[in-house]
Design a protein around this nucleic acid. Structure first.
Lengths: 248, 248
DNA sequence: CAGCGTCATTGATGCAGATCAAGCGCGTGA
DNA sequence: TCACGCGCTTGATCTGCATCAATGACGCTG
């Protein structure tokens, strides 16, 4: 059912995020080598479902290029995106049999994978990998909870601003640029995907995006390329604590 | 500012949930003993804030009796509860400096605590504790994401039913009773706390709770004691997959 | 370059839940 | 015993977003 292709990538490519985020900091080279041995790459087309909720998930990995999303769907078709996976984000649940939600390629996607069993074995042998994963999972938990505030209490306009702000921030850190001057990025999501993430309809998303443009909070080139002239202004619209300075 | 009292509890009381959930399964008695050494108890009154978002959090622990909640607040006062901590739930973030949200005692509360540093040391020495914590954190992440669906896509009535269903389920497993016949429990939350959890106003909560009562989905004794005559009916109202049987 | 599919915009209308405003029941303390 | 506060209910009204319905803009393919 599922069309996947293993593609060619240099073995020790600097891109592989697992290497950076999960093990690199404290790993002895011996362990790193073992990880390299069980590593492989997969690519997916936009729209493809990578894993269905409830299915056996036989690998863990992380996003190299593109965007994936975690979504939950009710019987009647209402869907809610519960996670947005950008490059360097980790996917999978060591110690779990099956996926708890659908994993969908939102754009064309390349993932760096490890078969689950060998990865778990390695975890058992290498305690600090479990600790690193715990930290990453705590980060995800924080993100999920921040998103609960967005979903539960923010207005449509604030929701849009929050989403743009998050993507802009992620993009800025990826580009290693100091956050100065206007920020630019391509929206990796359709209006519908944005709506699913924000608990809105696509019509409302469209209206509010254009309202933000009208009000000069953002500028749009085409439908997907966003320019943020003043990031603080955007944060303000998102209802975030802007809190420029620290206390005491 | 904070009024806390250390209370008397037998040292190796069977109640301590950390023992059950975090370590008991595979721990050698030696490690268990070390945990006992650094264990202590705290009690709080309903309404007390246990930790403020951003504060240093110098302990981890779990709920023994009562209910605590994790809440986030915007500058203008809008608040969203992002986690509900019932007895046996774990609080705290090993490896983290400060709390990411307010922790509030929603009812009178007893917690079993460990000072953070010794607990972390023990984690470092005892790999499977980190693995157990990872599992628990993944559970929390699943719960948070399920809640995102509730917040983003469910109607007020479905939200109420979802909350009741979760509490009923938790209560049932705590009482170790097979889930048969009518389920009964006390709501450990005010209408306002429910509203904060569900992203609603307290008026809407009140109306919908009474609507569920009118429709015979639940019965109320006083304002807090709930009787669920038919749990499947409640799940249906919550919009959950009821999916009585398994496939294949 | 016509025809189609996908993604996005825009307008008109309706409704679920917020907001505003009383009022009730019950425990508590003077 | 009364008054006060707190948690909750109930009603009237308002509004932000959903819903329904066209239409527009782009890219792809024949």
């Amino acid at each position: 059912m599922q069309k996947t292709v293993t593609i060619e990538v240099p073995r020790d490519c600097g891109e592989c995020p697992i290497r950076h985020r999960a093990v690199c900091a404290r790993c002895e080279s011996e362990e790193l080598t073992r990880l390299e041995e069980i590593k492989y790459y997969r690519s997916y087309e936009a729209g493809q479902t990578i894993v269905w909720s409830g299915d056996r998930m036989e690998f863990v990995g992380s996003v190299v290029r593109g965007v994936a999303s975690l979504t939950q769907t009710m019987e009647d078709g209402r869907t809610q995106m519960v996670g947005l996976l950008l490059p360097s984000d980790f996917v999978g649940r060591p110690g779990r049999e099956s996926a708890a939600y659908d994993v969908v390629a939102t754009s064309d996607l390349v993932m760096c994978c490890f078969r689950k069993k060998p990865f778990e074995d390695m975890m058992a042998r290498t305690p600090h990998i479990a600790q690193r994963l715990l930290e990453m999972t705590l980060d995800e938990l924080d993100a999920a909870r921040e998103w609960m505030l967005v979903l539960g209490r923010k207005t449509a306009r604030e929701k849009i601003a929050s989403l743009l702000s998050i993507i802009a921030r992620r993009d800025a850190t990826l580009n290693l640029a100091g956050v100065e001057g206007p920020l630019e990025f391509d929206l990796p999501l359709t209006r519908e995907a944005m709506a699913d993430y924000l608990g809105l309809t696509l019509e409302t998303v469209s209206r509010q995006v254009n309202a933000l443009k009208r009000d000069g909070v953002i500028d749009l080139i085409g439908k997907r390329h966003v320019i943020v002239p003043d990031f603080d202004r955007l944060s303000e619209e998102a209802g975030d604590d802007s809190d420029g300075g620290m206390l005491s």
